[in-house]
Design a protein around this nucleic acid. Structure first.
Length: 284
DNA sequence: AAAGAGCTCAACCGCCCTAAG
DNA sequence: TCTTAGGGCGGTTGAGCTCTT
C-alpha cells in the first residue's frame, strides 16, 4: 500500500528491474554522457537500454537536452534574453520550444519556468490575465523599456572600456548607433548618453480599450525620476513627491502617482519589483 | 534560532504528431 | 488503413533552497 501519490523508486534490490525516477545521480549522468559521446543522440529508448540506464527514453532525452548537453547555458537569464522572451511570447504565445530556438543555449523548460515564475507572478499581482491586452501593453511600455535600459547601462559600461556599443544579441536589431531597437513593430530609442529609454508606439496601435497603450512616451530615469507621458498629456510617475510640469509635449494638466518607492523602480527590474498599477490601469 | 511561507527549477505526465511497418 | 514506437510539446509537480517573521 503506497502512502505517496508520487514516490520515486529507490535503488533497493527489490526493484532493481524497475525504471528509476526522480533526480539523476552522477553515475547516471556519466553513463548517458559517455554513451552519447560514442553513439550520438536519438533512439532514446534503445539508448537507455544499451547505456545500462534504468530510465525511460524520454527521461534520458530530457536530461540530456535540458541539462547535460554541452551547449546548455547555466545561470540567470540576461536582460537581452528576457527581452527576447517577452517579445517572442507576444508573437507566439506559449510556444516555448519555438522561442527557445532564438535563445542559443537556453531550453524551452527554462524559458517556461521564467515565464511562470517571473512574468505570471507580476500578472497575478496586478490581478490581470497574462493574455490580456492590458498586460501585453504593460510589458511593452514598462517592462521592455526597463530591460532595454539595463542593456543600455551595460553597453555604456562596456563602451567606457571599449569605446564601442555592442548589440545585445543578433536577434535584437539596433538600427543606429545610439541604440534604437525595433521589436514587434515598436521602436525603442535607447539614448545611452542621457540614460533615457523611450518606447514610441506606432500610431496604428489598436485602441479598442483605453489602457496603457495610449502612453506615447516612457522615461525611466532622471531628471524625471520615472514617468510616462500619456496621449492625454497627463504624466504618470512613480515619484511620490514629484510635481510634473512642462514635461516634453505634455501640459501636465494632471499627475497620477504610482505608489511604489523610487528605489524599487530604479534599482530593481520589473521581475523583482512589484508595481502597484491597479490604480494606474483604472485611470487609463 | 526556528518555523513557516514563498520561490526556483529539474523532472515527470499526458497528449499529440509523424513515420515506419 | 491500422498499429506502434519515437520524439516533441505544454502543463504540472514537488524537493530543496531562500527569505521572512
Amino acid at each position: 500500500m503506497s502512502t505517496n501519490t508520487k514516490s520515486f523508486s529507490s535503488s533497493s534490490s527489490e526493484d532493481d528491474n524497475e525504471l528509476r525516477r526522480g533526480p539523476w545521480t552522477l553515475e547516471e549522468d556519466t553513463l548517458l554522457i559517455q554513451y552519447i559521446a560514442r553513439h550520438g543522440e536519438g533512439r532514446w529508448n534503445l539508448l537507455a537500454n544499451r547505456a545500462g540506464l534504468r530510465r525511460t527514453g524520454k527521461s534520458c532525452r530530457l536530461r540530456w537536452l535540458n541539462y547535460l548537453k554541452p551547449d546548455v547555458k547555466r545561470g540567470n537569464l540576461t536582460p537581452e534574453e528576457q527581452l527576447m522572451i517577452l517579445d517572442l511570447h507576444s508573437k507566439w504565445g506559449n510556444r516555448w520550444s519555438k522561442i527557445a530556438q532564438y535563445l542559443p543555449g537556453r531550453t524551452d523548460n527554462e524559458i517556461k519556468n521564467y515565464w511562470r515564475t517571473r512574468v505570471q507572478k507580476q500578472a497575478r499581482h496586478l490581478k490581470i490575465d497574462t493574455n490580456s491586452t492590458e498586460f501585453q501593453n504593460i510589458i511593452r511600455c514598462f517592462w521592455m523599456p526597463r530591460l532595454l535600459q539595463k542593456i543600455g547601462d551595460q553597453n555604456q559600461l562596456a563602451s567606457s572600456h571599449q569605446h564601442s556599443i555592442t548589440a545585445p544579441s543578433p536577434q535584437l536589431q539596433f538600427t543606429h548607433e545610439q541604440g534604437a531597437v525595433n521589436m514587434s513593430g515598436y521602436e525603442y530609442n535607447l539614448d545611452i548618453e542621457k540614460q533615457n529609454t523611450e518606447c514610441i508606439l506606432p500610431s496604428e496601435l489598436p485602441m479598442e480599450t483605453p489602457n496603457t497603450s495610449q502612453f506615447s512616451e516612457y522615461h525611466t530615469s532622471s531628471p524625471f525620476g520615472g514617468a510616462m507621458v500619456h496621449n492625454d498629456h497627463n504624466v504618470y510617475t512613480n515619484d511620490h513627491d514629484m510635481e510634473v510640469s512642462n514635461f516634453g509635449n505634455s501640459a501636465a494638466a494632471e499627475s497620477y502617482y504610482v505608489p511604489e518607492s523610487e528605489s524599487n523602480w530604479l534599482e530593481t527590474d520589473f521581475s523583482c519589483s512589484m508595481w502597484n498599477m491597479d490604480e494606474l490601469l483604472q485611470r487609463c
